[in-house]
Structure formats: C-alpha cells, structure tokens
C-alpha cells in the first residue's frame, strides 16, 4: 500500500472512455451535450471569448458537481487566470463548436467499435447528433439576446420543436424535450454527469489502489 491516490475534481471524457474501455451510454450522451452547451451558454452570457472546436474527448471535462466544460475552463466555465490566457486560441462560431461537439459525442458512443460496425442509436439521439453535425450557419437575423439567457431553457418558445440547431440553446431544448418533463432537464442532466464522474472516480481510485 502507501500509494497516494490523487483526488481529482474533474475527469476528461477520454479518461472515462479509457478507464471503462467501453462507450458512454445514451443517457450520458444526452447529459454531456446538455451540460456542455449549458456551460458554453454561460460563457456567452459573460461575454467571454468563444470556445474553440472540440478536437478530441480529452477536451471535454466532466466535473465532480456534474458540470461539463470544454478545454481548460473551470467548473463554472471560466477561463484559467493569467495574462497568457488563450487569446490566440482559434475562435469558432457557435455552430462550429456544436458540430465538433456532436462529432466527439458520436465517437464516444461508437468507442471501441470496428470501422465496419455501427452502433444502433435510438432515433431521437441519432436525430440530435444528425442535427448537431448537419447544421446550417445562422444568418445572423435571429437575435439570441444575451440578456435573455438564463440558467434553464424553459420559456414560451421552448414548446416549439427545434428544426435546425443554430445555438447552444437549441441543443439544450432538444435534450430537454427528450425527458418526460422538460423542466427536469437541469437537475436530471447534472445528476447523470455527477454520477458519471462519481462512478468513474470510484473505478479510478480502485485501480490506483490495487496498483
């Protein structure tokens, strides 16, 4: 014994995939999409620079409290301190980030499968990923209205079905519509991500101990 087990506050999606050696399940995919878009919206609200594209599952962090962020941002989606910052980071449009997130989520669902094999996804999840990865660029005529952004996604417009994804909010609306009660989305998806972190951390700690 005696081996120190490092306490972690966040795990990357790549670490989770590797530790389990299997893909994420569908509920985790919905939850990671929702939570990630929630933190990206929060960044927009604070008028911080846009996030870059998601290049790999290592860019997605699942935090102890169920938050999900991209890159080096903290659990509140805030950029790391320091003048160096990431100002030179390539800036991407909201739709480009969503497309890259959709691709990485799909790959996490497909993890470990051979090239000629394909996982059969439930139609709503396949539709979500299809929407995320086949988007048209917003023409700018639709005002997102930063001041109207709030923590949840429930307002009158949320009763409408999303035909084309143009924003993080649209992704969140589709994820919320997947649940029997849309207003449960923030609490439910946070709980799914919190459980994903906790279960993976348990395995991580166990493996570290037996080493």
């Amino acid at each position: 014994g005696g081996a120190a087990v490092v306490v972690r506050d966040a795990l990357s999606l790549e670490e989770i995939l590797r530790l389990y050696s299997q893909p994420i399940n569908e509920e985790q995919a919905w939850a990671v999409c929702y939570q990630c878009c929630g933190s990206l919206r929060a960044r927009l609200r604070r008028r911080e620079p846009p996030a870059g594209r998601v290049e790999s599952p290592a860019d997605i962090r699942i935090w102890k409290d169920g938050a999900v962020t991209l890159g080096g941002w903290d659990a509140n989606g805030r950029s790391p301190p320091g003048p160096a910052g990431k100002s030179e980071h390539s800036q991407c449009s909201e739709t480009e980030v969503i497309e890259s997130l959709g691709i990485i989520i799909y790959k996490a669902l497909d993890y470990g499968l051979k090239e000629n094999e394909e996982r059969e996804l439930s139609p709503p999840l396949e539709q979500l990923i299809d929407h995320m990865t086949n988007m048209i660029e917003a023409d700018g005529s639709k005002d997102e209205g930063y001041e109207a952004l709030d923590e949840g996604v429930e307002d009158e417009n949320d009763k409408e079905d999303v035909e084309v994804i143009q924003s993080y909010r649209d992704v969140m609306k589709l994820c919320a519509a997947h649940l029997p009660t849309r207003s449960d989305a923030p609490r439910h998806y946070q709980a799914v991500c919190r459980a994903l972190f906790a279960e993976t951390m348990e395995l991580y700690t166990f493996l570290a101990r037996i080493k």
Binding site: Y20, Q22, P23, I24, N25, E26, E99, I103, Y106, K107, D110, L113, E115, N116, E117, E118, R119, E120, L121, E126, I129, D130, T133, N134, E199
Partner: peptide, 23 residues
C-alpha cells in the same frame, strides 16, 4: 452495472457513422 447494452449493426454508407467519418 456499467455494462452498456447496445446493438451493433453493419455500417451503412449512408448511415450517421459514414457521414461523421467524412467530416
């Protein structure tokens, strides 16, 4: 617990996997 249950099918050239791998 932890074991995902999912079906695997042969990849179709028009399927989502094919579309995503082209991006």
């Amino acid at each position: 617990k932890g074991k995902s249950i999912y079906n695997i099918k042969q990849k179709h050239d028009s399927g989502i996997k094919a579309k995503i791998s082209m991006k």
